[in-house]
Amino acid sequence: MPHDDPHAHDHDHAPIEADGPQGYYQHLAAATRSLLIEKGVFSAGDMRAIIEKIDERSPALGAKIVARAWTDAGFRERLLAEGKKAIEAEMDIDAVAADIVVVENTADVHNVVVCTLCSCYPVFILGRPPDWYKSYAYRSRAVRDPRGVLREFGTEIDPAREVRVHDSTADMRYLVLPMQPEGTEGWPEDKLVEIVTRDTMVGTAEVRAAG
C-alpha cells in the first residue's frame, strides 16, 4: 500500500545491496545472528516470532485510533489526555511499549513529528517508519523549515495556521490526530479508517475525503 512511489528503491543512503550478492553488512548480520543463536542467547524460533509480531504492526492500527477519536468525543478526550492508557484500555491494541503523546490538528494548529537525533517512531501503532522519516534530509530540515518540507510532500499549510513541530528526542512517541475532513461527518468508523493514511498521522499530509 504505502509502496506506490516511483522512487521505490530510494534508500536513506546511496548504493549497496538491492537484490545483488550479499555485502559485508548482511554477512555481519548473519554472523551476529548465528553466533547468538549458537550461544543460546535466543533461538531461531524467537526471531521468527518477533519478526511476525513487528510485521503485524501497520498504520491500520493508528487509523483505527484516529477513526475512534473522530466518532467518540469521550475517547478523543481520554486519548489526548493519556494516549497510551486510552489506546491500551479501549482499543484492544496490546503491548504499546512507549508512552504515546497524541497531538491534535485544528483549524489553528498543524502538528508534524520528526526525530532529529535518530528515528524514534511509534512502531507499535504505525508499523515500521518509512525511509523518508529516517532520511537525513527530513531529520535535518523538518525542524528549521517545516513548511518547506511539508511542501515537498505536496502539503501546503495555510500561513495563518501555526505549524508545531515535535522533535521526538526522548521517551515519548507521537501520534498526530489529523482533522476530520468536511463532508465525512456521520461516516461509520470502518469507512473513516480507509481515508487515514500513515503520513497524516506523522503530520506530513492532511486527510482527504476520497470519493
Binding site: 550479499q22 548480520a29 532529529t116 537525533l117 537525513y136 535535518s140 530540515r141 525542524v143 515537498e152 522533535d167
Partner: peptide
C-alpha cells in the same frame, strides 16, 4: 543534525529486506 540542510526530502519507501528485519 537538526537545523542543517541535507537536501530535499524524497517521500519514498522501499520494501524492508529480510536481513534488515533480522
Amino acid at each position: 543534525m537538526g537545523g542543517l540542510d541535507k537536501g530535499p526530502v524524497v517521500p519514498s519507501a522501499h520494501e524492508i529486506e529480510l536481513w534488515e528485519k533480522q
